[in-house]
């Protein structure tokens, strides 16, 4: 029997990172990352390509050694995490052409077997293969050769392999890249179920901001090797000054104005121009606007509050 996997004290964060740095030669990829993921929380890591998302996640998975900093995942340093720790962590990998001759059912049975010694009374491991196939929507293709699966079906299999050990902490690096909208919706449901029913803590990266908004309890934005924003989608949106955009036309000329509080602005607009105002449009900033504003600001090295640009044309 493996050691008791439930030894992490209640209330201890699933992930705790302080001052994480990663340097390749002269090139600093991570320059001091601090982050926490609490037990049962779904956290989404956003950032432009090359910001260090994958590096961060691979360090947390224990696949890469950091240059400096303190990293704790489920109470242990991933670099030294033993097999009992490994059994509690799930990693969804981007598969490519591995196990082409195997079938999904056979592969899941084989890989799931490694978790049997780590089953506990309240956390049976691994998941039952039929249930898992049904959950990720692969039942019909369970006995086909993996080499003949479509890209989307392969991604579902990747997810199934990643969660087969009923992980307490799950890592997903761009899990929905290449999924069609229906598969994406199914995947979102699965993430919600894992987080709500199983209490799984989840850290994922994505480029899909709508996905981040829908899935994440909390969003982290990583730019230039640092976390520059941390909060719920709503909280982040409010951090950007001028979180709404008002567009209108007056005497054939078009205007755009960014404001934190559009209602008094529009009232004033009508008081001044009355019936000459046409084509009025008020749009609240969404996560995407916030994200773009934040990334631009931090990439240009400016540390002041981000703003939606005010233009007139």
């Amino acid at each position: 029997m493996g050691p008791d996997p439930e030894h992490s004290a209640a209330g201890e964060p699933a992930i705790s990172v302080r001052g994480l740095q990663m340097t390749y030669g002269e090139h600093a990829v991570l320059t001091g990352v601090d982050l926490d993921v609490h037990a049962g929380e779904v956290v989404c890591l956003l950032g432009p390509n090359g910001a260090g998302k994958t590096t961060t996640i691979e360090i947390l998975e224990g696949f890469r050694l950091p240059s400096a900093g303190e990293v704790r995942v489920l109470g242990e340093n991933p670099a030294e995490g033993g097999d009992a720790w490994r059994a509690r962590v799930g990693v969804v990998l981007q598969s490519w052409r591995d196990h082409a001759r195997w079938t999904p059912r056979r592969l899941l049975e084989q890989l799931g077997g490694y978790f049997t010694p780590y089953a506990t009374a309240d956390r049976p491991r691994p998941y039952e293969v039929d249930w898992l196939l049904r959950t990720v929507g692969l039942t019909e293709n369970a006995d086909r050769k993996i080499g003949t699966l479509s890209g989307g079906q392969r991604r579902r299999l990747d997810v199934a392999v990643g969660i087969i050990g009923r992980p307490e902490m799950l890592f997903l690096d761009e899990p929905t890249a290449g999924l069609d909208p229906q598969a994406r919706r199914d995947f979102h449901d699965l993430v919600h179920r894992l987080a709500d029913l199983e209490g799984t803590s989840i850290l994922l990266t994505t480029h899909d901001l709508a996905e981040a908004e829908r899935l994440a309890d909390r969003i982290l934005i990583l730019v230039n090797g640092r976390i520059v924003a941390d909060g719920s989608a709503d909280a982040l949106t409010r951090q950007v000054a001028g979180s709404a955009e008002v567009r209108w036309a007056c005497d054939g000329e078009r205007f755009v104005h960014a404001t934190a509080d559009p209602t008094p602005f529009v009232r004033e607009l009508f008081r001044q121009h009355g019936d000459r105002v046409t084509d009025l449009e008020v749009r609240r900033a969404n996560l995407e606007d916030t994200y773009i504003a934040m990334v631009q600001r931090f990439e240009s090295g400016d540390r002041t509050a981000p703003q939606l640009a005010e233009v007139s044309r």
Partner: peptide, 17 residues
């Protein structure tokens, strides 16, 4: 080949894999 196609990585992610 299995280093490149991820077979090995799958096993690295398993206890005693």
């Amino acid at each position: 080949m299995e280093r490149e196609d991820g077979t090995l990585l799958r096993h690295k992610a398993l206890p005693h894999g």
